[in-house]
Amino acid sequence: MGERHSGDGLPGRRHAHPGGVLEGPEDADGDAGFEAAVAAVLRPGGVDRTAEERAVAAFRAARDSGALRTRTRRRDDWRPGRRAALPPRITLSVVLASLTLGGVAFAAVGSDGPQKHADGGERRAARPAVSAPRQPDTESAPTTPGARPSRPGHPATARDTLAHCRAYERVGGRGTALDATAWQRLVTAAGGEDEVAAYCAARTTPTHGPGTGSTGGEGKTGESGNNGNSGNSNTGNAGSTGNAGNTGEAGKAGGSGRAGGGAAGKK
């Protein structure tokens, strides 16, 4: 920085780095001497007396005709606070840009909504199957009383319980090593410290084993058939019907729908 400002080095450096760093206004004082020299050359030294007298005469005439009491227009207001005011054309483009961006954001929200809804719908169809057998057990003592006791089927609760059980398994039954609150909740949910192992076994097994959970899985198969069909609007709808049904047969229906779609595409 300092050596760049040395007088004799400046021109050579400029030529050596024509595409160099763009100097900001705070850096421009390095050229202050140059600017002052240009200004000294371009600004006339004196003022033409005749021209000044003409201007003053014009001022006198305007003053005497009451022109000094005229109304201030927007373009006449140069008070410091107003100086940042943008010209109308730029203001308009800023407004248009914000509208455009706002529209993009709105469209993004709009396109995100149904997607999440469909996802949630799938989850809602699958979750009750998982939590259905647990519900009678948790009725007496909710697993997470602090969380949302009014929604026992909420995914977070099931996940919490599973996490607690896995942590319990990992520490090998040494309950004191667990986080105290979580451990207490688990004990409360199981109905006693001795019941925890059995409780957890009941929790963790059905989720992965056969039963209602597998039905949810087949529902998913139906949905994948639906995804494959997304190119054909009508058959795709048929596939989604298959998804809504929670049985494996419905998933098959989705598959047949895809076959139909392929035939239609051929034709």
Partner: peptide, 13 residues
């Protein structure tokens, strides 16, 4: 000279 009455601001303005 004619519009001086309309002007609002300081020297820089």
């Amino acid at each position: 000279a004619r519009d001086l009455g309309r002007f609002r601001g300081d020297g820089a303005g």
